[in-house]
Design a protein around this nucleic acid. Structure first.
Length: 113
DNA sequence: TACTTGACCGTAT
DNA sequence: CATACGGCCAAGT
């Protein structure tokens, strides 16, 4: 069961810089489709030192999941912009940076490895 | 044990 | 755009 968390972390770590993915997409990629909340819960408990691109994970709408104005919210905007991701009103245009759909599967690494 | 919460999602009004 | 609804389920009360 600890293995499941590892797969979720791995899925997040696999998001290329400059791209973003939704909680749902991460869950699916980690082998637990339909369990976006689990991903969110995990991200809320990421150990301090752990190196993980948590900021590249957004809601399916492209919205940043944290409360607008909160420290984490600003931090996420900052880090995303720092790698070239456009953020307007706490939202990222998935049409351009999203890693959910179609041809992007190539960037995730092929299924089964 | 029962009920509530929550970095969520998709469909339907 | 905003609500509503049903799914999901680990943790905390």
């Amino acid at each position: 069961m600890q293995d499941r968390n590892a797969r979720i972390y791995a899925a997040i770590a696999a998001i290329p810089p400059g791209r973003v993915a939704s909680y749902g997409a991460i869950a699916a990629r980690a082998g637990v489709p339909g369990r976006a909340r689990l991903v969110g819960r995990l991200l809320g408990e990421v150990p301090e030192g752990m190196q993980l691109p948590w900021f590249r994970v957004l809601r399916a709408s492209g919205q940043i999941a944290m409360p607008p104005g909160s420290r984490g919210f600003r931090e996420q905007c900052r880090r995303l912009r720092a790698e070239g991701v456009e953020v307007c009103n706490g939202r990222v245009p998935l049409s351009r940076f999203g890693l959910d759909g179609d041809l992007d599967h190539a960037l995730w690494g092929l299924p089964g490895q």
